[in-house]
Structures are given as C-alpha cells and as structure tokens.
C-alpha cells in the first residue's frame, strides 16, 4: 500500500466534518472522491497532504512521495510558462520540463508570460506542474475546473500514464473523467454525525 488512511476524523475551523474514514491506495490505483460542496473533500486532501493535522486517526504515506495541487495553481503571472515550470522542477530536484509541456500542449506558450494565458490554459499549466515533480502520489483538488472537454481528456491521459507507471492518484472532482479503472468514494457517507468530543473542547461543555 502506498497510501493508508485509517479511522480518520478531520475538522474544518474546529468543527468535525468527516469521521471514521478508512481507505487505502495501492500502486496503480486511482480514487475519485465525491460529495456535495462543504462535505470536507478539500479538508481531507489538505490533511493527507500534511497541511493540517487530523483530529484523530492516521494517514500513512511517505511525505517525500506526495504532491498536492489545490484550488489555486500557484502560478506567477509575470513569469513565463517555462519559468513557472522550471521553478517547480528545480524545487523538486528535476530538470526536464519538455514532457510536461507536451502532455498539456503548452509548448506554443512556453515563452509567454503566464498572466497572458486564459483560465483553462493556466489550469493546464498548474496540472503540468504535477509531471515535473516526479512524485508518486498525486493529491488533487478539483483539477478539472475551467478545463474544456479536450483539456479534460488531456488530464485523464496524464493520470492514466501516471498510474500505468506505478503512480497513485487521489482526486476530488464532480465530473466524469472517463477513467474506467478509477474507484469512487462518496465522502458524504462519512459525514461527522455528532460533534467529536475531544479532550479539550469537550471539557468546555
């Protein structure tokens, strides 16, 4: 198992949103998270990415194997597309960005400032970042926002290539990516029922 989540309870703004969540991902698997707005998908992904601590339960994953992509792409408008990608490649200790540019058809824009791109193109640049990190576990939050059908297909292709090479992807999304091998997990089922009474907040009552 590359990613193990055990009895996880998570909170947003001090209020538990999901509880007793258990799942795991083995090599080559894709897990799609579904659930209504505010059900805690983003909080779950941020917890798995290590940005916030869980209320209880365990997340087992090599931190050095994970890459996280949130709602915002982290693109600098005044840097060119190539500069943006090169930066992240260097941060993750890689050098080559050509395959990432090709996978998301960004080659023609490589020397253009990222600020001049359209919303969908920016998103493609944000997703291309995943390819230059060389990481095994992709943790993606709504990756297809503002992508057209063609770009969604590009993204699905990139995910397929990634898992075919032994990678793992955890994706929160509302649309059908056309990935037949993907499992689906509806987090609505794990909605926190009562306020989890932890040692401290519970003591206030």
């Amino acid at each position: 198992m590359i990613l193990n989540v055990t009895d996880l309870t998570i909170a947003r703004g001090g209020i538990p949103v999901l509880e007793d969540l258990t799942f795991s991902l083995a090599q080559g698997q894709v897990l799609v998270l579904r659930g209504p707005n505010g059900s805690g998908k983003t909080t779950l992904l941020r917890t798995i990415a290590g940005l916030q601590p869980p209320v209880s339960g365990r997340v087992e994953v090599q931190p050095e194997s994970l890459v996280y992509a949130g709602h915002a792409d982290g693109i600098k408008a005044t840097l060119t597309v190539a500069e943006n990608l090169n930066f992240w490649a260097q941060v993750f200790g890689n050098a080559d960005i050509s395959h990432a540019l090709a996978a998301f058809e960004l080659g023609a824009f490589a020397d253009r400032p990222a600020g001049a791109l359209s919303a969908g193109q920016k998103r493609r640049l944000g997703l291309a970042r995943l390819l230059v990190t060389g990481r095994v576990v992709w943790v993606l939050d709504e990756p297809t926002v503002s992508l057209d059908a063609h770009a969604v297909a590009m993204f699905a292709m990139a995910v397929r290539t990634h898992v075919a090479g032994g990678g793992v992807a955890l994706i929160a999304t509302h649309i059908d990516l056309g990935l037949d091998e993907a499992r689906v997990l509806d987090v609505g089922y794990y909605r926190a029922r009562a306020l989890a009474v932890d040692d401290f907040d519970g003591a206030f009552l």
């Binding site: 209020i15 926190a192 009562a194 306020l195 907040d201 206030f204 009552l205």
Partner: peptide
C-alpha cells in the same frame, strides 16, 4: 473567555 468559548462550541454543535 471560557464561557464565551463554550457558547461557540454549543452554537457549532447546534449547527451540526
């Protein structure tokens, strides 16, 4: 402060 905090916890629980 403790009572204010307790009130917020109760309000949150009510919303839940």
């Amino acid at each position: 402060e403790i009572r204010a905090r307790r009130m917020r916890v109760l309000l949150a629980r009510e919303r839940m």
